[in-house]
Write a protein that binds this DNA or RNA. Structure first.
Lengths: 195, 195
DNA sequence: CTGTCCATGTAAGGCGTTACATGATTGT
DNA sequence: ACAATCATGTAACGCCTTACATGGACAG
């Protein structure tokens, strides 16, 4: 279960409240592991009963107690263990591709808006990722562990390259649909960068 | 709910039993919308109560009845309606990227095997996709609807291009980790195909 | 005669989502 | 004065997964 280990990952940097963890997720790993609030609170409680984290209860009169979680030595071990073991990929579900697959039922006038809608969404997301990447890459911090920073940034790089591939594929698809060019690609050509 | 519409999509081609639908999924849309057996049977029952499909019961003495499902006119309408409306992307969850993000906790000797494991898996999947694409593209059927065939094949093309991007990113990442080269990419360079 | 294929389902559990609820503090 | 932020949680539901169960037909 990756959510547990992602939480342990954040707690390995510093103690967090559930609320702050939610923000940390949204600002860093949400594009490959979104987590919602109620899920985080439940999972923290589980990690606590498993002894992988401890909680420090901060009483606040008239309001719910605030709880700051810390990782335990067992938690660190579980994290390292999980990090160094290969895990099967979670399978992806893309409603948009289902639409394309059965797109034969639609006319061009019905299909193209759907394709264009997705293209625009991809362009926007790509612009956001690019800006984010550049702002992150533009402030090298000599105090930080360069390698750890690099690895974290690598996941954003993945988002960028896969989004670009998606956008390019989709833009080409739109052109082909518009031109009624239904020929398959020639994979033996120069597109195939392998070997 | 895409599963319902994917099932309707298959039933729009011909009647199916639950069993045959499972095979159809595995052979075509599984890489972007996997479906398992019990899910399919349950969803067929729901579609039936909603009046989007009808079932023809084929009694087989001593065994459970066989049921062959057909799409209704209402089902066709629901399908077309769903196909022509944009849908928000289902969010992705990639345990591997969580591992990379928190990879700072691992040594090169621990991290590299994980990266290489995933690279090899990607290479294998890519080889499978490439072979599949070529076999599909290599048998043009003049009887079929060229456009519909093209659109279905387009989803496989997406799988290919995104897998290639993934593989290339991962291969480069491995090289950089091995070289201790932790510099970020320069996105203003020639890699950025946009504009 | 053992295993795989055909073909149906049920049961239980896990993970994730949405909506609701509380109540002080800070910003416009 | 009103909204957003801080900070916690609960309840209910939905979708998907895993495991189990049945039983004939057919292939090696």
């Amino acid at each position: 279960m990756s959510l547990k280990h992602a939480i342990l990952g954040f707690l390995s940097f510093s103690p967090f409240t559930g609320y702050d963890l939610k923000k940390a997720f949204d600002q860093s790993v949400a594009h490959f592991w979104p987590a919602n609030q109620s899920q985080i609170y439940r999972t923290l409680a589980e990690l606590d009963t498993e002894g992988l984290v401890t909680k420090e209860v901060i009483a606040r009169e008239e309001r719910l107690d605030m709880k700051r979680y810390q990782i335990t030595e067992g938690g660190r071990q579980a994290l390292r263990q999980w990090l160094s073991t290969p895990h099967p990929p979670a399978d992806t579900r893309e409603p948009f591709l289902v639409q394309v697959y059965f797109g034969g039922h639609l006319t061009d006038a019905e299909l193209l808006p759907v394709l264009q809608h997705n293209l625009q969404a991809a362009e926007e997301q790509l612009a956001g990722f690019t800006a984010l990447y550049q702002s992150q890459a533009g402030r090298p911090n000599p105090l930080a562990d360069q390698r750890a920073v690099f690895l974290a940034l690598l996941t954003l790089e993945y988002g960028l390259t896969s989004l670009r591939a998606y956008r390019d594929w989709l833009a080409a698809a739109i052109t082909r649909v518009q031109a009624h060019d239904y020929r398959p690609l020639d994979l033996t050509g120069p597109v195939n960068g392998h070997r």
